[in-house]
Simulated scan of single mutants.
Amino acid sequence: MSRKFKIERDYYADGEYLYKKKHVEFEPGLTVLVGCNGCGKTTLMRQIRLQVEKDLKNPCVLHYDNEKHGGMSSIEKSMFYGDMSFVATSVTSSEGERIALNMQKMASKIGRMMKEHPEENEFWIFLDGIDSGFSIDAIEDLKRGLFDTIFNTYPGKDIYILVRDFGSFGC
Rank of each mutant, 00 (worst) to 15 (best):
M1T: 12
F5W: 03
F5T: 00
K6W: 11
E8A: 10
Y11M: 02
Y11Q: 01
Y12T: 05
A13D: 12
A13H: 11
G15T: 03
G15A: 03
E16V: 14
E16Y: 12
E16L: 12
E16K: 09
Y17K: 07
Y19Q: 00
Y19N: 02
K20C: 10
K20S: 14
F26H: 02
E27G: 03
G29L: 05
L30Q: 00
T31E: 07
T31F: 09
T31Q: 09
V34K: 12
G35Q: 07
C36S: 08
C36R: 12
N37F: 12
N37E: 08
K41I: 09
T43C: 10
L44K: 07
R46K: 14
Q47S: 06
I48Q: 04
I48T: 06
L50I: 09
Q51L: 10
V52I: 09
E53C: 14
C60H: 05
Y64S: 00
D65G: 03
D65I: 05
N66C: 02
E67T: 09
E67H: 09
E67W: 15
K68A: 06
H69C: 00
M72V: 04
S74H: 11
S74V: 05
S74L: 06
K77V: 07
K77L: 03
S78V: 01
S78N: 14
M79S: 12
F80G: 05
G82D: 07
S85K: 15
F86G: 01
F86C: 04
V87Q: 06
A88G: 00
S90Q: 05
S90C: 15
V91R: 14
T92P: 01
E95M: 13
E95N: 13
G96Y: 05
G96A: 02
R98C: 07
I99E: 07
I99H: 07
A100D: 04
L101V: 11
L101F: 15
Q104I: 13
Q104S: 15
K105N: 02
M106N: 06
K109S: 10
R112F: 13
M113A: 03
K115V: 07
P118R: 05
P118V: 08
E119V: 09
N121M: 11
E122N: 12
E122L: 04
W124K: 02
L127M: 15
D128S: 02
I130Q: 01
D131M: 08
S132N: 10
S132C: 07
F134Y: 08
F134R: 06
D137W: 11
A138M: 14
E140D: 13
D141N: 10
L146T: 04
L146A: 02
L146W: 00
L146P: 06
T149E: 11
T149M: 09
T153P: 03
Y154V: 00
P155C: 01
D158M: 00
D158R: 02
I161V: 15
L162E: 01
D165I: 05
D165K: 11
G167Q: 06
S168Y: 13
F169Y: 13
C171I: 11
